[in-house]
Design a protein around this nucleic acid. Structure first.
Length: 156
DNA sequence: GCCAACGTTGGC
DNA sequence: GCCAACGTTGGC
């Protein structure tokens, strides 16, 4: 069992959008960064737990829990000329971009904003809070995952 | 809207 | 294989 943090801009795709999907499952498409792709392709397993993070919001922060709901498979948007994520260099016979399906698990009782994550001792080493971090998929430790989940399940 | 950080592209 | 130019991310 692995733990992850996955960023999304809620204007594009939010936790509520995921919750509203058929079966509450949706492909995590549009990842066009090799490191993030490699995490999905090489390291994600069915049932892995995900901190669902909203970026470009006021404030940014973790808003819910999701889980990995498929094995990796080619990202179909890379082959769709009409898609914003179309990549003419991705050969269908040798796909460049892969994704996993993500399933809604829970909405936190309260959001855990980035500012608060920075104050959680267990999270001091998180890549998320380090300078210049832009990666949209980050591995997190079990301790980090549990500390943020606990903060989000607390009343307040 | 600004801008620092950083990934990618492409000429050489 | 270097590196300048360019594009994107994402907090502020």
């Amino acid at each position: 069992m692995n733990y992850w943090l996955m960023k999304t801009e809620p204007d594009v795709f939010s936790l509520a959008d995921l919750q509203a999907c058929q079966d509450q499952i949706e492909p995590w498409d549009g990842i066009r960064n090799y490191q993030a792709r490699n995490f999905m392709r090489d390291d994600m397993e069915l049932g892995d737990q995900i901190l669902f993070y909203h970026s470009n919001t006021k404030p940014p922060g973790v808003v819910g829990i999701a889980e990995v709901a498929s094995k990796p498979y080619p990202d179909p948007t890379a082959f769709d000329e009409k898609s914003n994520y179309y990549d003419p260099k991705s050969d269908p016979d040798n796909p460049r971009w892969v994704l996993v399906d993500v399933k809604f698990k829970a909405e936190l009782k309260r959001d855990v904003p980035l500012d608060e994550i920075k104050t959680i001792p267990e999270c001091a080493e998180m890549r998320l809070i380090q300078r210049g971090n832009r990666l949209s998929i980050n591995p997190v430790t079990k301790a980090e995952f549990q500390a943020i989940k606990k903060a989000g399940m607390r009343k307040g």
